[in-house]
Structure formats: structure tokens, C-alpha cells
Amino acid sequence: MIITQFVILGAALFALGVYGVLSRRNAVLVLLSVELMLAAVNINLVAFDAFVADRIAGGQIFALFIIAVAAAEVGIGLAIVLLIFRNRRSANVDELDLLKL
């Protein structure tokens, strides 16, 4: 199995995630796009882990850590989105301009 295809696919999925973060305005969908970017990075890590095949399995362990961090991020992020929705009756990130002068 050649590694290049995984790297290119990971880059494509990451770019789609970037597009999602920049273009979606529902805060939940922005978080979904961030999840897509994290998963794309995981593809790279696991592919390079299989390519290098070192003893300490760094790629796979890092992928596990990223999954754990993503789970924590989703918990906190969705709680924040729910609080914002409760306060402002909207989860549209364009309307969250309290800090704007």
C-alpha cells in the first residue's frame, strides 16, 4: 500500500474542513468542520505510522490522543453553543458580534 494516496486524501479532507469552517455560519456546523479536519490529520498520522512502523507506534498513539482531545473539544464546544443559543436565541456565528466596536 503506497502512502501518497492517504496523504493526498488527508489534505483534501482537511481543505474541505477549512472551507466548512470559513463558509458555514451555524456554530454547530463549524464544530463539525473542525471534527473533519481533526479526522483528516488522523489519516496522515496512521498512514505514516504504518509507513515508518517504529517500535513505539507513535502515529497510532497520537491518533488516539487526538480522538480523546476531539471528544473533550466537542463536549465543551457544544455546551458553549447551547449556552449561546439559550442567551441569544441563535447559533449563527455572524450574529455573535458583541466584541465588535
Partner: peptide, 23 residues
């Protein structure tokens, strides 16, 4: 599936459980 292709079976299982199941 890509994880399984790269012989990372445990990471694949965790990925499905956490992402598809919980997240």
C-alpha cells in the same frame, strides 16, 4: 476503513466508537 488498511485495527475500532457512537 483507511485505518484498517494501515493495520491500525484498534484505532479504527476506537474511531468508530467515539466518532460514530458518541460524538
Amino acid at each position: 476503513v483507511f485505518f484498517v488498511l494501515n493495520d491500525a485495527h484498534f484505532v479504527a475500532a476506537v474511531h468508530v466508537l467515539i466518532y460514530a457512537g458518541a460524538v
